[in-house]
Write a protein that binds this DNA or RNA. Structure first.
Lengths: 239, 239
DNA sequence: TAAGGTGATTTGATAGTACGATTCGGGAGA
DNA sequence: TCTCCCGAATCGTACTATCAAATCACCTTA
């Protein structure tokens, strides 16, 4: 990610410290501290604080300084915040939450897609599903991940719900995190993969209920996989 | 909502213009335009643009100015963005999307709450459900809405998922919007209300599946109600 | 001891200036 | 006539200096 401008670097640096717990809730820091820590002018420090304030990570008040807000107040859906949490000690919790969110949303998105998707989108969905299964059979990890990401991006976008569609970005980060975490199983070809074809077919034929059910089994499996890894129970994708 | 600072007013003013479609995607405006439009200094205008940029509503580049990004790029989960969309011509679309999101998430939250909720929370949930049904029977609209909001806030918070919990804020706005939209039906006492007791009971007894099912029927009804109103089909809460 | 005021500290806001990057247009060469 | 390169205009970027406003802590006073 290309950090634009000097203030972007300050935002990123502070954001990481916040997400990493280095700066805990309730702590206050003066604008001057920010200036010194990053070697920037007051203007840049102020802009950085403004941005962090808009993400609800901090609140700035005269005479008291910049106080860190509790994590429950943060804009947890902000992609940048998600990224910070994903590269911090709280990484596991963020992964679990994302997996749960995805498990909740994607079945609904699939059902909506079955209602609203146009012919081109239905075709595209089917193509991605086929590419996915082909990559799985061939053991092509790179192609697998990209086809998986593309499939879910199209599916979420086809829901006609902008908020659903926007989850594609974080879903992709979940997928790459999963890849990095377990280096992908040797056997890519598992039941969950074939479900993608079921989803594509159900969407193509307008069967919303079936699309939701098939999508549900995919994301539930992914969620359970993430949870089992985080619990150290190992044996991902066993079922 | 208390707009803090001069720059906050500029952010809000620009945000409304953007959400309202007054400034369309691709349009560019110079920093100087912002200064003149709101009668503020360069610094304030810059801070406002920075905040809008962090919400992904605009992107600022040298030599070209501040360009409006397409709505699909915006941080649609930012509470402020939601509020702007909720007070703009696109209001109906935002309401529909929120209702769909809620319908997807709350069953999952209920299931998680059944697993994780402590005794105090289970009691609190039951209390709110009882207050809700009492208010419904008494025809107390104010008490009804506040009990409803409190119930869903506790439920989402009890899921142990911070991202779910954060949807409580927007859910409440959905509830008040619904109230304003149809002035609440005369008969508050309907099947969906009684389901709240089912949810509370299922959570209290750790029956995740049942909790999800009961919560699902509540939010599905609410979603269909919103959709029927927006389609002009009238007759809300009929079923 | 309690209430009120006053001062010091920190953010809020503005003005002015220098710098850098990017785009547009003109001119030279093929 | 077309292409490529270079310069200039333009706009955002960044810094400094300065004043205003708000708030908390301390001190005075009843």
């Amino acid at each position: 990610m290309k950090l634009q401008g000097l203030h972007g670097q300050v935002v990123d640096g502070l954001g990481r410290s916040l997400a990493g717990g280095e700066l805990r809730a309730g702590e206050v820091l003066r604008l001057e501290d920010v200036q010194e820590r990053f070697g920037v002018s007051r203007t840049v420090a102020r802009e950085a604080v403004r941005v962090l304030e808009s993400k609800r990570l901090v609140s700035s008040r005269p005479r008291v300084g910049v106080t860190v807000r509790p994590m429950s107040a943060w804009n947890l859906y902000d992609p940048q915040v998600i990224r910070w949490r994903l590269t911090s000690p709280g990484r596991e919790g963020q992964l679990r939450e994302l997996a749960e969110l995805r498990a909740a949303v994607e079945p609904a998105a699939a059902a909506l897609a079955a209602q609203h998707a146009g012919p081109a989108v239905r075709q595209e969905l089917m193509d991605h599903a086929r590419a996915l299964t082909a990559a799985a059979r061939a053991g092509d990890k790179e192609g697998f991940v990209s086809a998986d990401a593309a499939f879910h991006r199209v599916l979420l976008g086809a829901s006609g719900n902008g908020m659903f569609a926007q989850l594609a970005e974080v879903t992709e980060e979940l997928l790459v995190a999963r890849r990095d975490l377990l280096l992908l199983p040797e056997r890519l070809d598992n039941p969950a993969v074939r479900r993608h074809l079921d989803v594509a077919a159900a969407v193509a034929e307008g069967r919303g209920e079936d699309a939701a059910r098939a999508a549900g089994s995919i994301v539930a499996a992914a969620r359970d996989e993430v949870e089992s890894i985080l619990d150290g129970t190992a044996c991902p994708l066993a079922t």
